[in-house]
Nucleic acid binder design. Structure first.
Lengths: 411, 411
DNA sequence: CTTCCATTTGTGGATTTTCACAAATGACCT
DNA sequence: AGGTCATTTGTGAAAATCCACAAATGGAAG
């Protein structure tokens, strides 16, 4: 059975439930229409044959959480959000989800919602794809209308988020009230995460990830700022939050690597706080991480959290102090002079050794030299610098000055 | 042969050379009179029997350097400066010094010069002591006169030194001119060393040391400030200067320990500079060392030079910065909480381990625990703090935060 | 009282580090 | 060419570290 083009156009100005019924009649299967947040908008009323997933969706006026997470995990939503065509979905019996076909309702790039067609009375073939496409097109107008209000509120939410990020003259109670009035559920504890992409198109690319985590987000063009936190029944502690953020970033970066299109993706997050007055602080911390990851690319490659910055949290400041009072590490300069005079590279040896936390084996491996060569060089370094590498104080100061010195060159 | 009291009084207003002759006649031996700086003032003219040391002294109008250093080393001057009686000195043939007796010429506490009586024609016994005592008393007036001019200049030198220490609006050339006009030989390179004694009597105590090194010095009551440097023909480098200062302080502190009278002696020195405009800087650095030695008594016990401060150079500022920022090392706090909750002392274990530069053996010894206990504790620490002690960055940051945290408690 | 659990200490073997000594290399100087 | 010197690599033995497993201890909870 085929349908002439623009068949569903007649439903444009009718109730959206009627549109669902019309699609259902054509495809001879139960239909569900949801918005972008998976809230139920409409469903076809004919026929009782349905699966637990659809049943729960209708009863709860929203797609059940476990079904959603399953679909995210299977990559279904990723496809729906990026592909224009209907997506054919196998059954996932463990979450009560029967076989079905879905298509995103989009206006331009933006996804407004989804149409779900269950395959229960008859299979839905690729020949039906065009029908779903037309149905999606017909649904746009209604969803746009609906979206209008939500968008306005969303904009106000984002403005509020920026307010929290940039300044914080408001009291904790005021913040809570305003959040409530905007239907915004603030997680506790939370942390700010920044994703910095070289090209400007980060919004579209990361949309699936953000959707999946239902994160509050704003973007200033090059940086995407996320409010990380879990709005789960049982509250999680900061440690767990850190780990979940790490996990999130790992997946995101992995995906980015797979694309491998262009440039380096930088990401960082601030510490976890429970008071919303500290959102600005977490934001500034995340910014600091991004800044330091640019300055110490190799050293901070595995670092994303402000609390994991270690000495790099201090280095800029240390460098500034040292410059302000004209301090120079004389020993370091002696070594550098020696390197210059003898075309050697003891500085690199020293740095590698310190980076390796004094493990001679791994140092030698990294430098591709014999272990005895390393030990000889270290002895020379101790002689030239008049330093005792077994003295933790001297060693630490050396490590700091060395890294700070590197910074000078790179700036 | 004995002499009536005040025998030498008649020589009070006569030429000091006549006094020397008179003493020589009474003791039947060659006499030499020197000022506090060992410059020759007078000598008896009878009899040719003398030793190379006296001969050189008369010819050079000053006691030869090698004789002086030998006498300092043997502790002769130390005795002369502290004892009121004549000191009987054995022969030191290797520097051409025959057997002799010497006495300090003093006015109150201050030593103005020395009378030397060689023992060549007849031995000088303790019975002659009174003669020398009287002779010394008779010499005072002449030396005071002589000293008058020198003291005035010395005072102007000290004023100039303070000027250099505290401010430096003058140009290098101006400084040199003024130093020259005050007959002051400025060493190059130099460094400022401060000795801080709890009681006020440091001047007298350290006088021998300062005299020996011929150092420029001023005191502000509790602190003795020294200009360290060698005015040797061939210039020495900063490295050698550091070592000589270390050596100087080691000896001085050892002497102080031996006395063991009261309180702790603090000493520190700034970096070596060649430009006199930087004298203030070296002074401030030395002050900083003293300050930090008070704050980190155990940790900086072996540190005297500013260039050896290591992380302690940063720590105060770092601490202040972190506080201003409201930063807290969450991991450290977790460990402290654990210690509180379980009456354990993992923090001490961690600190000792870090101080020992990660050597398990010496850590276990210092803590008096089995090495496996240590390894177990370290594993627990890594678990509790969620830290990787093999990661140099984390480890260093931990070390810094831990020491800074300690500071907080002590202040 | 027993049981549980964190902690401490002991044992033994694999691995790594440290150190001393020797030989080879190669740059630089005479 | 020969010699000097810093550097690299090799060998081997002693010392230190790491790791897994087991047993003892001792306090807290049931």
């Amino acid at each position: 059975m085929s349908v002439q083009p623009n068949y569903f156009e007649q439903f444009q100005h009718v109730d959206i439930d009627d549109l669902a019924d019309a699609i259902g009649e054509v495809l001879e299967n139960p239909i569900t229409i949801e918005d972008a947040d998976h809230k139920l908008i409409a469903y076809s009323s004919h026929g009782e044959s349905t699966d637990p997933a659809r049943w729960s969706t209708i009863m709860g006026r929203r797609v059940p959480e476990k079904v959603l997470t399953r679909l995210w995990k299977e990559g279904i939503f990723q496809r729906l959000l990026t592909e224009d065509r209907p997506v054919h979905i196998p059954a996932f019996d463990d979450v009560g989800l029967g076989k079905r076909v879905a298509i995103a309702i989009r206006k331009g790039e933006e996804v407004l919602g989804y149409i779900w067609a269950q395959e229960v009375n008859r299979p839905i073939s690729t020949e039906d794809d065009e029908i779903l496409r037309q149905a999606a097109r017909a649904a746009v107008a209604r969803l746009v209308q609906r979206q209008g209000k939500r968008k306005a509120e969303e904009q106000r939410r984002k403005d509020f988020f920026w307010e929290l990020l940039l300044g914080n003259p408001a009291s904790e109670a005021q913040i809570r009230r305003k959040a409530e009035s905007l239907h915004m559920i603030l997680p506790q504890p939370f942390q700010i995460c920044i994703i910095d992409a070289p090209n400007g198109q980060l919004d579209r690319y990361f949309y699936p990830f953000i959707m999946r985590e239902k994160l509050m987000s704003v973007s200033d063009g090059t940086q995407l700022i996320l409010l990380m936190g879990k709005i789960s029944p049982q509250p999680i502690d900061s440690e767990a939050l850190h780990q979940s953020t790490e996990q999130f970033l790992r997946e995101l970066l992995e995906k980015w690597e797979q694309r491998g299109d262009a440039g380096k993706l930088l990401a960082g997050y601030g510490q976890a706080y429970s008071s919303y007055q500290e959102m600005g602080r977490s934001y500034r911390e995340a910014l600091q991480v991004i800044k330091l990851k640019r300055l110490f690319e190799a050293e901070t490659a595995q670092i994303y959290g402000y609390h994991d910055l270690g000495i790099y949290r201090y280095l800029l400041q240390l460098k500034r102090w040292s410059e302000a009072d004209g301090y120079q590490n004389v020993r370091l300069q002696r070594l550098k002079r020696y390197d210059r005079d003898n075309q050697s590279n003891l500085l690199e040896t020293l740095e590698t050794y310190l980076d390796a936390a004094g493990k001679v084996n791994s140092t030698a491996q990294r430098l591709h030299i014999h272990i005895n060569t390393l030990s000889y060089r270290l002895r020379r370094i101790e002689e030239i610098m008049q330093v005792d590498l077994d003295n933790q104080n001297q060693r630490t100061a050396l490590y700091l000055d060395l890294k700070a010195d590197k910074l000078g060159k790179e700036q």
